[in-house]
């Protein structure tokens, strides 16, 4: 029996659309944090991260550019907002000074603070499973 290509195409497309819809509508756990601190302006900080194209050099969860360090956990790494602001103001090596407004600085700090709470990007904090999958050793929160 010969199956027409259109049938397989439609079947795969339906599966794809279903899977995509589940992802769009899923209520992920980090929304709880979002709701808990709804009045902060971390979402604006994320837009500022995009506005200055920080992802050209930096990564979040190892996704992004390769010229600067990963910033997922930069907030807890320095545990000092002034140090992070100093990097933003003065620049470092390839990083130019961005001349951010104090609002933009604060919003970016809030973004890093919120991102830091979502988990760890340090690969040493992951464990290897027998099936080849990796998993964080413990929830950070």
């Amino acid at each position: 029996m010969q199956v027409k290509p259109i049938y397989i195409f439609v079947l795969l497309s339906v599966l794809f659309l279903t899977y995509s819809s589940v992802l769009y509508l899923s209520d992920e756990k980090e929304i709880i944090i979002q709701r808990a601190t709804k009045k902060d302006f971390s979402a604006e900080g994320k837009l500022i991260f995009q506005k200055y194209n920080c992802q050209a050099c930096h990564q979040i969860y190892s996704l992004g550019g390769y010229l600067g360090p990963d910033l997922t956990n930069v907030y807890s790494k320095y545990n000092n907002e002034d140090v992070i602001k100093a990097f933003m103001k003065g620049g470092f090596k390839q990083m130019p000074s961005f001349k951010l407004t104090s609002y933009e600085e604060s919003a970016l700090i809030q973004f890093f603070k919120k991102m830091d709470k979502t988990g760890t990007a340090d690969i040493r904090n992951f464990e290897f499973q027998a099936d080849g999958m990796i998993k964080p050793k413990q929830e950070k929160r």
């Binding site: 290509p5 195409f9 899977y19 992802l23 992920e28 980090e30 969860y61 996704l63 990007a121 964080p136």
Partner: peptide, 28 residues
């Protein structure tokens, strides 16, 4: 072609193994 199409649709999550998203997404 259909194998390539299935990969287009479902294999992308190998980019996000370290992201704290649902495990079933990573396994797919």
């Amino acid at each position: 072609y259909f194998l390539g199409l299935a990969n287009l649709m479902f294999n992308w999550s190998h980019h996000i193994y370290t992201l704290p998203s649902d495990m079933y997404v990573k396994y797919i």
